[in-house]
């Protein structure tokens, strides 16, 4: 087993005919992902990397029973693509684009929550369940199959963590990028609950960063978890009050979201704190025995 992306996933690629969409579709197929179709309005009837292209999501759902979608549409068009996928009954949406207007994110998030849809991103590398498939842009060679779950706010750091785990002989069940934007579609705490319930996953690694309060919120659930949780939080040296990229790394005005505050909350909830990513392997070995 794995979470969210498993052997029942039948995914489509929205924006499959675009430059990035097409290249990444090829990488996802090479990785063994079960992709069933692509969507680009106005390009229905074409074939891309052997996949049929449809004009809308509804047709792909009707003809192929698609239940997941990965998005490679430009940022300003993402909202409509996501709202369409939600309306068509898609249950897992991976929103890759960066530079998405915040109002659009708020609308997508609200719609996804009302329909109980998993929305990862925007600005996410996606999700990978090694050995099963990947929906997103993460380099497949950085991951191996195993029993560690990773939830990351940073795409690149999730690759780094997986690489470090591989060297220690610890593969991954599922690795999820929640997205680097200030507001993202799915809460870290909800994903943590999935990992806790997943029989394959033995421990969970949280990769957080300065800003927001998703790590603090997750800490509430960590208290109740049976599985060990290791956390690494980046951004100790980031200047406060400045935006570190288009990442969600903003310290809010009320002084929330500092690295120290997050570490304290996670530590008190019983998570083990890694000072740098490579410390995670040692901490895991200590608690897995």
């Amino acid at each position: 087993m794995s979470i969210l992306l498993d052997r029942n996933t039948r995914a489509i690629v929205q924006g499959i005919t675009g430059r990035i969409g097409s290249v990444q579709t090829n990488w996802m197929l090479e990785y063994g992902t079960r992709l069933v179709a692509g969507i680009t309005p106005g390009r229905g009837g074409e074939i891309v990397h052997g996949l049929p292209v449809y004009d809308d999501v509804y047709e792909a759902v009707e003809k192929h029973g698609a239940n997941a979608s990965v998005m490679f549409v430009p940022g300003v068009f993402l909202r409509n693509a996501v709202l369409e996928a939600i309306d068509a009954g898609i249950k897992l949406i991976v929103a890759i684009p960066e530079h998405v207007p915040l109002h659009d994110v708020l609308q997508m998030k609200s719609a996804a929550e009302k329909k109980g849809v998993w929305l990862l991103g925007p600005n996410t590398p996606g999700i990978i369940s090694p050995g099963i498939g990947k929906l997103g842009i993460m380099p497949g060679n950085m991951f191996t199959e195993g029993k560690m779950g990773i939830i990351s706010r940073s795409g690149t750091l999730s690759y780094e963590l997986a690489g470090i785990l591989n060297e220690a002989g610890l593969g991954q069940s599922t690795v999820i990028g929640v997205g680097g934007d200030p507001v993202v579609g799915s809460r870290m705490i909800k994903i943590l609950q999935e990992f806790e319930a997943d029989p394959q996953t033995e421990a969970v690694i949280i990769v957080g960063e300065i800003g927001g309060s998703s790590e603090e919120e997750a800490a509430d659930f960590i208290k109740e978890m049976a599985k060990p949780v290791i956390a690494y939080i980046a951004g100790r040296t980031a200047p406060s009050g400045r935006r570190m990229g288009h990442a969600g790394a903003i310290i809010s005005r009320r002084g929330q979201g500092t690295v120290q505050g997050k570490i304290k909350a996670l530590d008190m909830a019983g998570a083990l704190i890694a000072k740098k990513p490579s410390d995670v392997a040692g901490l895991l070995k200590g608690c897995l025995k």
Binding site: T156, L157, E209, G235, G245
Partner: peptide
Amino acid sequence: GSGAGLAMATMDMLEDRGFPP
């Protein structure tokens, strides 16, 4: 860094080694 998180992690490690970014 090719991502904000990776860039910040690198900064943190430099600081720890006494060579601030």
